[in-house]
Write a protein that binds this DNA or RNA. Sequence first.
DNA 1: TCACCTATCT
DNA 2: AAGATAGGTG
Length: 463
Amino acid sequence: MVWEFGNNVNVWGDARSSSSAPPVASYHHAMMHEIHVLLVDHESDGLVNTVKLLELCQYRVTFVELASAAISMLLSGKTRFDVVMANINSPDLHGFKLLQHAVTLGIPVVLMSADDNTFMAMRALENGAFLYIKKPATMEMLRCLWQHVLREKTRMIRERDILVGANHGHGPRGLDVKGVTINNRTVENPNDIVEGLVGMRNKGKAKKKYRGIRIGVDEDEEYDQSQDHMMMGGDNNVKRKMCTEWTLELHEKFMDAVEELGEGRCFPKEILEIMNVPGLTRMQVASHLQKCRNDNWRSPEERKAFQATQNGSPGSIGSQPKPRRFGSKPQLGRGVPSQVQQGTRGTQRSPETRSETGRSQGVGVVPVMANNANHQQYGTPVPDPSNAPPGSNSSSNTKDQSDEFFNFPDVDSLIQNYPGMQQGSGMNNPTTDPGTYHTNRFTRIRAKWGEEEEELEFRDVKL
DNA sequence: TCACCTATCT
DNA sequence: AAGATAGGTG
């Protein structure tokens, strides 16, 4: 049996409806209400009273009778708890097991018992409880429960910082809880445990990297955000920049993946898979891929060295985006260790391993207008059929191979002669721009034939 | 809906 | 300036 208390209480309600409510008090209430207490007790003695006191303190309370039930709730990860208050003498004898799980999850635990057992208290503290009390809990104790929650979280953050080390030069940032900076130190998501290569400042989206602390929590959304929410007192005026530092090491991993995939098959998702770096996201890989393709990325070491020598702005590095083919490889350019050269790696990933889920397009298909390089959005294609991902074989799209396509009079002259024909980009609006325009995956021709409009798609065209 | 891409933002 | 994000596209 699980009882929920205070779930639907809108702590802002009164304060907001009556304009006279002081904001400071409102914040206090909000802060308290964000703290979710898991109360575990099989003895009904004084239980109601404890619940009432907790509610008086504006905490959100969930109550279960047995420690085993509490463990299940914690491990399910469906609900976030900020603190556990448990009777150590649970009939299922799982009191210490509960303590263990809560500690692993980084949740502060108050253990209680009907009697004042010093030995038990010592064992509890040795096993990570922050308090052992004789029931019933007093108002004084409950009132300062939030401090223990906050302290525990701060401690976790400190440990995280030690793990991570320096903060990548982004400068110190304090945690602003409604204007209160805690300890004047960098506070970010306490669960932002960074593994290995990635120096992360996270947003609520990162996943696997939290496993060390968040056991049994599968998805991050609800959990992370609410956790943050509590820490921030529900305030979103805390500005945290989330950045992944692309260390040389990480970049090398990236480039290894790029090499493995080969020209025309470098897609963020694939690269991410091959890199296999916990916590790294596809978007981050995509962003880095863009930088590298444009030759706009330099390793931290190189940047530092440059700043040291040039004493100031490095000027313009890299190059402007230029036409390239879909899935193109970034350069193995400056600042990038070139021990990995093209073709030297044995493991070539089969094109068939590429995920086709939800992608019906001829990915990797070279956009081609025959003999007319100006019409190629992605530059000179690599006419290597073995490089072509699935779906790009010439028989994969019977529609495009229709008579209509092959009997089309003279595509080139059509383009050149049609007054509205112009080189466009993928951003052009295909519904309003007559002429040629180029999308990510293929080149289209849109022309007006009198009042009629025809659109042809050219796919799977080999040079 | 997902993934890719470019442009833009911070 | 690096890296995140927005928005268009298939």
